[in-house]
């Protein structure tokens, strides 16, 4: 199988995150592989391994769009087990919204499928920074491929996939022919960690760099200029401050209810 996994480098949510510069984009100085993308990568590796892995010609391509720092997300994916990396990078991409991002990624995916067709595009359920979940659906629309999003299980058999989706009020079984765009939830598997062998092996794996010219995208269609939405202003919310803290002396439950009553929350 030829699987493309989309990986994104995002600011580490363990630290304070900031919007900076023209267009209020996220500051990626301390960036990591988006945690939710690890589930997509694991799903891809399991599918490839079940078919004999890289030795049998199965490809798991980690594709990331972004400035130089995005390479870190690709390297991490290679250490975990992706067979090759592709870095789509171009100054004109800065500030792309979901529509512009999906346009560029769709062109990159078509480019990567020009020698041998891509069977599956796998993504996480959302990025941990923008959190809009728009890109997988927009990719499916642009590539005219079946969309199977929020999959909590995924099986591929003879050119067809079956997935399970768990929503709040119902669970669905979904079927689609390949190729397809699939986003997976954090319930689908337990992602592996890179081991020493993986880290060493990653040094020998190739990362291909693609520019907009390589994939035939007009720079005016992406970035701040080509985006259909823009951020006009951003204000940091004042951090929450601690209120009253009491230690239970046998009547804290009553005091809790007193507090709710005083706040008119009962």
């Amino acid at each position: 199988m030829k699987i493309i996994v989309l990986v994104k480098h995002v600011p580490d949510a363990q630290f304070d995150r900031h919007l900076t510069g023209e267009g209020y984009t996220t500051d990626r100085d301390e960036s990591i592989l988006s945690e939710l993308d690890e589930y997509a990568l694991e799903a891809a590796l399991q599918l490839a391994e079940a078919r004999g892995g890289a030795k049998a010609g199965n490809q798991v391509i980690a594709l990331s769009m972004g400035p130089s720092g995005a390479v870190n997300a690709i390297k991490k994916a290679l250490q975990i087990g992706a067979t090759e990396g592709v870095h789509l990078t171009d100054d004109a991409l800065a500030g792309s919204d979901a529509a512009a991002t999906s346009l560029a990624l769709a062109a990159a995916i078509r480019h990567l499928g020009s020698d041998a067709p891509v069977d599956l595009v796998l993504t996480g359920m959302a990025s941990t920074d923008g959190e809009t979940s728009l890109v997988p659906a927009q990719l499916a629309e642009r590539l005219d491929l079946p969309q199977v999003t929020f999959a909590s299980s995924l099986e591929v058999d003879g050119g067809r996939l079956t997935a399970r989706r768990d929503a709040d009020t119902s669970s669905e079984t979904v079927e689609a022919p390949l190729p397809a765009v699939v986003s997976v939830t954090d319930q689908i598997n337990e992602p592996r960690y890179p081991n020493f062998k993986g880290i060493i092996a990653a040094k020998r794996k190739s990362i291909t760099t693609l520019s907009l010219a390589d994939i035939g995208v007009d720079p005016a269609q992406v970035g701040h200029a080509g985006s259909w939405t823009s951020v006009l202003s951003a204000e940091e919310r004042p951090p929450r401050t601690a209120g009253t803290i009491i230690t239970d002396e046998g009547d804290a439950g009553i005091k809790l209810v007193d507090f709710l009553a005083a706040q008119k929350l009962l």
């Binding site: 401050t241 601690a242 803290i245 230690t247 239970d248 809790l256």
Partner: peptide, 19 residues
Amino acid sequence: FEIADFGIVGDLFDVLPQA
């Protein structure tokens, strides 16, 4: 507790049923 408007340091198995 750094972000709570009202915090109780205690055993939830006592506090919750009482509330």
